[in-house]
Amino acid sequence: MSIQHFRVALIPFFAAFCLPVFAHPETLVKVKDAEDQLGARVGYIELDLNSGKILESFRPEERFPMMSTFKVLLCGAVLSRVDAGQEQLGRRIHYSQNDLVEYSPVTEKHLTDGMTVRELCSAAITMSDNTAANLLLTTIGGPKELTAFLHNMGDHVTRLDRWEPELNEAIPNDERDTTMPAAMATTLRKLLTGELLTLASRQQLIDWMEADKVAGPLLRSALPAGWFIADKSGAGERGSRGIIAALGPDGKPSRIVVIYTTGSQATMDERNRQIAEIGASLIKHW
């Protein structure tokens, strides 16, 4: 067993022997301040990774656009098919120029040779490549099948209805392509620590998230040296922004954090800054 596999296998073990965790309302004060600064709703939840206990939450059962955070769930569904012998990570998928959609920095470079399922998941999570996500959605049967996968996990809230990039439209009061912070946090925890996926697939999923290259201005910008984070960000229309993450000190994750916002007129930089400040408060009061 590799060191990384050992780390993920012992996530519940280490967490069980940690000192009790206590909620700190100071972080919620910052979440509410972010709402004021952005002029928009902000949803927040913080779960203990081992027990699933909610440590703090704000608007945990209000719907927010998922945006690209759905790509972690998508690759979880792909990995479940791999575990069941219905898919192979090494299978190569070929596609054409007509398949390319807006923001496809990886797939646009491989029109000639195609990409493997493993490479597509890596591109979808680490670079948020939209064509990679659409190609992977095709392998599982489309958005409705991802929703069905989530329902089978016990998540009857999260739903995907459309493809990239239309799913980022974020129309107010439109339930399409949305989740709730509580539902997303619980589902992410199941994917990373539950028995739904094999140990190898859980490790692969967290490795992809740990290698995320496009979430630097968010929670990662607030992390002290030595902290662990595996995350996936999302951005959408109407001032929408979000991030889902597993993080913790001492090089291992111990909490799940989900943050979503929508309806702001603020710039992307300002949305990023507010999420980073929430992260800084979380870490300060850990």
Rank of each mutant, 00 (worst) to 15 (best):
M1S: 01
V8R: 13
A9H: 12
F14N: 02
L19H: 14
V21M: 05
L28T: 09
V29D: 13
V31K: 00
K32N: 10
D36I: 15
Q37V: 15
G39L: 11
Y44I: 08
L49V: 13
S51P: 03
F58Y: 15
P60C: 12
E61Y: 14
E61R: 13
T69C: 06
G76A: 13
A77W: 06
S80Y: 14
R81Q: 10
R81K: 13
V82A: 10
E87H: 04
E87V: 09
L89E: 06
L89F: 08
R91N: 08
R92N: 09
I93Y: 06
Y95R: 01
S96Y: 11
S96A: 13
E102L: 12
Y103R: 03
S104F: 02
P105E: 05
G114V: 03
M115Q: 07
T116G: 04
E119R: 05
A123G: 06
A123K: 02
A123N: 05
M127T: 12
N130R: 00
T131L: 06
G141T: 05
G142W: 01
E145Y: 10
F149T: 08
V157R: 12
T158P: 00
D161P: 01
W163E: 11
W163A: 10
P165T: 11
L167P: 04
E169T: 13
N173E: 14
T178A: 05
P181C: 08
A183Y: 09
R189L: 10
K190P: 03
K190R: 14
E195Q: 13
L197K: 06
L197A: 04
Q203G: 12
L205F: 05
I206A: 14
D207L: 12
M209S: 02
V214H: 06
V214P: 05
L219I: 14
P224E: 06
G226K: 11
W227R: 00
S233V: 02
G236I: 02
G236Q: 02
G239Q: 02
S240L: 02
I244K: 00
I244V: 13
L247G: 01
P249I: 06
G251W: 07
I256H: 00
I256D: 00
V258D: 01
T261M: 15
D269L: 11
D269M: 11
I275F: 14
A276S: 13
I278A: 02
S281D: 08
S281Q: 14
L282E: 04
L282A: 08
L282I: 13
K284I: 11
